[in-house]
């Protein structure tokens, strides 16, 4: 009973907000980029974002768990079966998104059973971004002790350096749209008990998810003391996104941004191998050099060598 009443209350508040202008007619593609379509009268802005979450075949279990965690965090997402990684390029995924009536997609691509790439794309007109995912910790890990409601809307916190460069700005907007839960979504619960942290440190986007625990004495109205006593407990998952490229279209189109500091994990591994290889080569070189040196500068024959030989 109580829950229902609260919902109606919040709806009333919304109605008060949008006052005079009547709701415009919905265009055919209006739901996809609703903001653009209804830019003229934003008062009736409705967020109808739907996110498709899938992964490539032969994904590692750890990364699959990460994907499942993301699914559990986004009540507005749809999960799809794994996609063959050969056909990941573009068309299939776009088709899939359209088929599932989604407006954006998170695609976890695992390569070589060790590297995880995350595609974040708005469909159908783009843009899309490709990240390398590092430092993955899933919710399964027992050291993350927090817990929160499934389907409560997260508060999104961004570090201020998201607003400094254009590509960060674009990524921020995409993250807001994909990770922010739509306000009037069916599965949403009307409380806020967790926070997402998106922070740029060392040119990587770090993600954290914390539970907000406030010692309650009163249910809704919290006096300042209650807020001061608020603590956060980490729920997980943790991951770190290293942006690689941003494309104009969805899974394709012109490249708008390329990370100049990016080194692919393949290259990194190759270089490490090379470094190891040169160690041996150096040793062999040193040996031959020594040999040459010995040949070049032979020892003078010792005149006392056979003094005691009789």
């Amino acid at each position: 009973m109580g829950k229902k009443r609260k919902q109606t209350e919040s709806q009333e508040v919304v109605k008060k907000d949008d006052t005079a202008p009547p709701r415009p007619k919905r265009t055919l593609l209006g739901w996809k980029d609703g903001g653009v379509a209804k830019k003229s009268d934003s008062a009736v802005f409705r967020n109808k974002e739907k996110v498709l979450v899938t992964c490539s075949r032969r994904i590692m279990s750890r990364y699959r768990h990460l994907m499942m965690d993301v699914v559990s965090l986004l009540p507005h997402c749809k999960k799809d079966s794994k996609v063959e990684s050969k056909e990941t390029k573009g068309a299939t995924l776009n088709e899939l998104v359209e088929l599932r009536n989604c407006s954006s997609i998170l695609f976890f691509e695992c390569r070589k059973q060790k590297d995880l790439y995350l595609w974040m794309a708005k469909s159908p007109s783009g843009p899309s971004a490709k990240f390398l995912v590092n430092a993955v910790h899933t919710m399964e890990e027992l050291k993350l002790t927090g817990n929160h409601l499934k389907g409560s809307r997260p508060i999104l916190t961004f570090s201020a350096n998201f607003d400094q460069e254009p590509h960060w700005k674009l990524l921020k907007e995409m993250i807001i749209q994909i990770f922010g839960t739509p306000k009037d979504h069916g599965k949403v619960k009307p409380f806020h008990d967790h926070v997402f942290v998106f922070s740029i440190v060392d040119r990587h986007i770090w993600f954290r998810n914390y539970q907000i625990s406030v010692p309650h004495n009163e249910t809704d109205k919290v006096d300042r003391g209650g807020l001061d006593k608020m603590t956060l407990v980490e729920v997980g998952p943790r991951f770190c996104l290293n942006p690689i490229k941003i494309f104009g279209g969805s899974f394709g189109g012109p490249t708008l941004y390329e990370n100049p500091f990016y080194i692919s994990p393949n290259l990194e591994r190759a270089q490490m191998k090379k470094a190891k290889a040169t160690k041996y080569v150096k040793k062999v070189k040193a040996k031959t050099r020594r040999k040459m040196h010995e040949i070049e500068n032979p020892l003078e024959p010792d005149e006392f060598a056979d003094l005691w030989k009789e």
Binding site: S42, F45, N47, S159, K169, E173, K183
Partner: peptide, 26 residues
């Protein structure tokens, strides 16, 4: 990038309730 941002961005005066975003000076 700016163009794309404009394309996908929600309207400027969208209610904060929809976004629930907070910036933090790091």
């Amino acid at each position: 990038l700016a163009e794309k941002l404009e394309d996908i961005a929600w309207p400027e005066d969208v209610d904060w309730k929809h976004k629930l975003t907070v910036d933090h000076e790091q």
